[in-house]
Amino acid sequence: MYTVLVIVQVLTAVGLIGLILLQHGKGADAGAAFGSGASGTVFGARGSANFLSRATAWLATVFFAVSLALAYLVHGEREAASVIDRIQPAAAQTAPAEASSAEAPPTQAPAVEASEPAPIIPD
């Protein structure tokens, strides 16, 4: 199912790119007045605008629907919500092993005698 949706997603994206590149921008009308040949296209002077814009809207709808379906499928497959959630169980498993080690006695910091206060350094 996941593979089929990814294939549909890629084909839809390529189709959207092609349809968007085929469409004329809003500035193309001014260029057509000076003989750019827009009236001699396959769809005619205004015939392609309706077909291409509707096809683009449908492909965009399919693209978003497949994106939501893929997000829903991937959400159910993940094992942990975040990186921290994945690290905490691993740290909990290693902590008792380190604490049960009786070979190494705990080290303590040497006691510091407070006979003389630390010097204050001006800024």
Rank of each mutant, 00 (worst) to 15 (best):
E116S: 07
A57G: 10
S53Y: 11
F64H: 07
P89M: 04
A80E: 12
V42E: 08
S115L: 06
A69T: 12
A99R: 07
A90Q: 13
A60E: 02
P89I: 05
T56Q: 04
G18Q: 04
R86F: 06
A104V: 15
L11Y: 05
I84V: 12
A71G: 08
S67E: 03
R54A: 08
R86M: 10
V6P: 00
R78Y: 06
A60C: 07
G37P: 03
A104D: 14
T41H: 03
S100I: 10
L70I: 12
S36W: 14
V14S: 04
K26Y: 10
L68D: 01
A28S: 12
F64G: 07
A99D: 04
Y2N: 11
S39P: 04
T56L: 03
A111Q: 03
A118F: 10
G35C: 01
R46G: 06
E79W: 05
L70K: 06
P89F: 06
V74R: 11
T12S: 03
T107M: 13
I20P: 00
A30W: 12
S48Q: 15
S82M: 04
A97G: 10
E103G: 11
D29C: 00
F43W: 15
F34N: 06
D85E: 07
L21A: 09
G35S: 01
V62H: 09
L52S: 04
A33H: 15
A114I: 05
K26W: 13
D29E: 14
A102N: 07
V112L: 06
V83H: 06
L21N: 07
A28H: 09
M1K: 00
A95V: 08
N50P: 02
P119R: 02
I20W: 03
D123T: 09
L59I: 06
A38E: 13
Q9M: 15
I20R: 03
P96S: 05
K26S: 13
D123C: 05
V74C: 04
S53P: 08
G37A: 02
R46A: 06
P110S: 09
I17V: 12
I87G: 00
Q9K: 13
A81N: 15
S67P: 00
S101T: 10
A118H: 09
A80K: 14
H75V: 03
T3M: 10
V42K: 13
L5S: 13
A81P: 09
P117M: 01
P122F: 05
A80V: 13
A28C: 05
E103V: 13
A57I: 04
L21H: 05
E103I: 12
V42W: 14
G18F: 11
H24V: 02
E98I: 15
